[in-house]
Design a protein around this nucleic acid. Structure first.
Lengths: 202, 202
DNA sequence: GCGAATATGAACAGATCGGTACATATATCG
DNA sequence: CGATATATGTACCGATCTGTTCATATTCGC
């Protein structure tokens, strides 16, 4: 049995370490500079991985981008939901904590907004795989929010989840563009009022 | 006196009609396909205006993009705020109507999200003029919302305006990506709860 | 209709785009 | 070690990128 099969998340190739390294490092560049604005030659310089190797792992730039988005979905969603979980709060408070985790993210150095909002902005055709993958990412978050809203005893958990997600996306855009000094705080207060309206305070 | 000076909004050139035509038609292409993904040769084909003329009016592609963004700010903000005004509602209802106007926009054929969110996604450097112009557009909307919130008698008009803007931006992202069947509706209901919390119901 | 301003078309420049060819080097496994 | 898989470097391909050149039309104010 090949030990490499156990490393990382990719199973299509025998030695995925280089591939994973490429995905991770490309993610950083795409996130910082954008998809169209980043050329393959830039990736060679920034990742230190040869162009030949890149095109051995991914047939096209688009394939690489899709792998980057898959990786981002996995890591970001894991990080976000686990951060929520680790706070070990009652469900109602957990809904609010969404916006505390969000603020943590906004305060990270190098924060540049949501990779999926940007992907859907650069690949606007709704049928484009980068677009559909981005939509799917948001659906998965929505579903997690809904399950939280149910546990919190919301009268209409689906609606509450959608509204909290709207607040979250709005806060991300505000943080990215910088037109609000504390979008996470404003969103948190709004969420509090919403939760109050959805879940009568015992 | 030159009659051309009265046409359109541009005053730097003697015959602004071609320039305005170029800006308007380029806007449509950039909006549909994105900034980086649209080349100048594509613009020649899609606008029917020669490349020579383009570069006589704008020294670089970036200059054209900035003019497009200025034009978009003007027309969109005018349209949005006038649509609100024309409804002739009491201030409190006007705040809610934000999301009715929003839904109208979402339902337009060819809707592809907010041009400024996309601009700030493609030009991520916060110091890039396309980015700062996008931020400014949102600030102007925020200011209009705040003035509405004041007229509606909100206890903290600035906060309410920021929250309504977050809902609006979130709804736009949701509409662009398509992960919510009725983002304007969900946002409207949320706004209703927020307004209720900010402005006690007589 | 005349002179001046403006618009056009096509060809071109140099850089960069995504992607390939191929020969060489390095690492891994038995 | 020896065999095999993987990674590298460089040079190259055709297409496309932003922007220019220049000679020719077209449109304008008067």
């Amino acid at each position: 049995m090949n030990a490499y099969l156990l490393i990382g998340t990719e199973r299509e190739f025998m030695r995925p370490s280089k591939r994973d390294e490429l995905v991770r490092k490309s993610l950083a560049v795409f996130y910082r500079d954008g998809f169209h604005a980043t050329g393959m030659d830039t990736l060679v310089v920034e990742t230190g991985i040869s162009k030949t190797t890149m095109f051995k792992h991914f047939r096209t730039k688009e394939d690489l981008i899709l792998a980057v988005l898959r990786y981002r979905d996995e890591t970001f969603r894991n990080w976000f939901l686990r951060s929520l979980d680790e706070r070990d709060l009652p469900p109602r408070q957990k809904l609010l904590a969404i916006f505390d985790v969000l603020r943590e993210w906004f305060e990270e150095s190098g924060f540049r907004g949501c990779m999926f909002i940007k992907a859907s902005s650069e690949f606007q055709d709704p049928a484009h795989p980068a677009h559909t993958q981005s939509t799917e990412h948001k659906r998965l978050l929505l579903s997690a929010f809904k399950s939280l809203a149910e546990k919190a005893g919301a009268a209409r958990p689906e609606l509450l989840a959608r509204q909290l997600l709207l607040l979250k996306e709005g806060a991300i855009v505000a943080a990215q563009m910088g037109f609000d000094p504390d979008p996470a705080g404003a969103a948190r207060e709004a969420a509090s009022a919403l939760i109050e309206a959805h879940i009568p305070d015992t």
